[in-house]
Nucleic acid binder design. Structure first.
Lengths: 178, 178
DNA sequence: GAAGATTGTTGTTGACGACAACAATTGTTG
DNA sequence: CAACAATTGTTGTCGTCAACAACAATCTTC
């Protein structure tokens, strides 16, 4: 009962041909998305399926995010965690996990990593000694500012890819999920 | 360099509160998406990020797909594989993998599963004995027809969720990724 | 025909979601 | 106030998935 979508920023460069309808040749492209030579395979077979389009789009968008923020080694989930903490200092792990739809068990590892890099700090809450109050470190705050600039650059890539108006329309349509 | 999105169809029913701003109470909801009580946490912190919205939307859409096709135990990737094979009989595994952006190593297991259920058959190609020509079995064809009906029902859920026009606009915007 | 490429396969690694169990701590209730 | 239930952070397990690497069998090419 689980479905995953994984993304990498490495480029594929294979160039194979279907054995059955043999004939065409084409150059490799820079991603895992089917190139023009494959699009004539079942062109409309998956059209009209929102989930498939969204899946492929997400693969692309995560690829670009990871590539654009590659220099600072920050991935989408890490960025979202730091963003939420930065906007709401003192939040508990439980609160962050619920806000982002992350398992709290998963958040533990994410915070371990961010704390090791001195970007986030866990402070025992005085009012509820079970929980940790999460804060960005000074280093984390300046780092997040840089991440935001890179993320904005990534958003520009998205706008270039699907169009500025389409991106805004998309954000509007999906605003209920943010 | 990897990012994942996982989805489950189980319902969450936790109901915790942030320790810092203590006061509110609210009822649990039926999903992992943040409920209204959490939305006031960093409301606009992640707004404007297409990737996050798309991620959350995809989680929802996969949840619904898995739930809607739960009776036939077919998940999105399996459905896409059968759809492509059904529309293009005789395709090689390599061709299907490239078309769907799946690793051929991953497709091996997917086909193992589908072949075990007698939905897909691998036939050694006569022209290229390295490759397998993929076909739907008779059972697979009738099954796929049912899957399609359920998938259509799922698409109706999407339309209910974001609006009929918004769904069509979305499909149009993301048509380049299909 | 030998060297290189392709196809399907197996196995490994890492990220991720879902669960379960646990200690520490709170809250709740009799 | 004292048992009991619930919450929080943590650890560990399981299953899914993407990315790789290596391999045998099989083309392709020179």
């Amino acid at each position: 009962m689980t479905e995953s979508i994984h993304v990498s920023n490495r480029a594929a460069k294979s160039r194979a041909e279907t054995p059955a309808p043999r004939g065409r040749k084409r150059a490799g492209n820079g991603g895992s998305r089917p190139d023009a030579g494959d699009l004539d395979i079942g062109l409309d077979a998956l059209a009209g399926h929102a989930g498939y389009a969204v899946r492929r789009f997400q693969i692309w968008i995560f690829q670009d995010f990871i590539r654009t923020l590659g220099a600072v080694d920050i991935r989408p989930t890490q960025y979202s965690v730091m963003t939420v903490i930065g906007a709401n200092p003192g939040l508990s792990q439980m609160a962050v996990a619920k806000r982002l739809g992350i398992e709290r068990a998963r958040l533990v590892h994410l915070l371990d990593s961010l704390e090791q890099r001195d970007l986030v700090s866990r402070v025992r809450s005085a009012t509820d000694r079970r929980s940790h109050a999460l804060h960005l470190t000074a280093r984390g705050r300046t780092a997040l500012a840089q991440f935001r600039r890179l993320a904005a650059e990534h958003e520009r890539h998205v706008a270039e890819k699907i169009g500025k108006e389409n991106r805004e329309k998309l954000l509007q349509i999906l605003s209920a999920f943010t």
